[in-house]
Amino acid sequence: MSTDKKEREPMFSAKNVKLLTSPLNLNNPITVQVLGICSALAVTAKLKPAIVMTLSVMIVTGVSNFVVSLLRNGIPPRIRIIVQLVVVATLVILVDQLLKAFLFDVSKQLSVFVGLIITNCIIMGRLEAFAMSNKPWPAFLDGIGNGLGYGLILITVAFFRELFGSGTLFDIQIVPQSLYNMGYVNNGLMILPPMALITVGVIIWVQRYYNRSLIEK
């Protein structure tokens, strides 16, 4: 291969670190690339499932990016989607079995959404856009970075929904009992699915207000 002649760049060169950090804000998979909303919103009523979901997605994006990038020269372009789906589906089955074995209650809460990681647009999008044309290590970092960016939004949304919807964080009561005695009531609307969409809408609003370059014409 021609790439062998080049000097080896360090594992965490500036370019590679950028791969890891740019999805956190300016290239965020949810608010900027608008990928992977499907599973992002349904699991954010509580913090715990949101964090488990983040870890699962991060592992699957990272490893699938790595594997597909290793295979990229051997995959015929016509059947690449099927090959990618098989790689991703295998990883998701592994994650699903692990969750069922060690975190059964969370796995029940996530129900079909673990399986839906397969069709999570972030994974397919990154495989198509990055892993098919880059070397394994940068592809792995890109996958982890996008998983982190996805998780950042998920955890922010889950934080607000759990705090205002149930008055708890990680199922520990945060809003003091004295406030309830004074007549404070949890906002039941925050638990309902539509509020997740509105919360993400507001996050996008705040983000674009501070990053004018992202505003759509």
Binding site: I204, W205, R208
Partner: peptide, 23 residues
């Protein structure tokens, strides 16, 4: 629409409102 909300932002909020209506 406020500039920062144009495009995708307002679509999210609209979908949320439609979801409430569908409830």
């Amino acid at each position: 629409v406020p500039p920062a909300l144009r495009g995708i932002g307002i679509t999210f909020i609209l979908t949320g409102l439609m979801g409430i209506a569908f409830m």
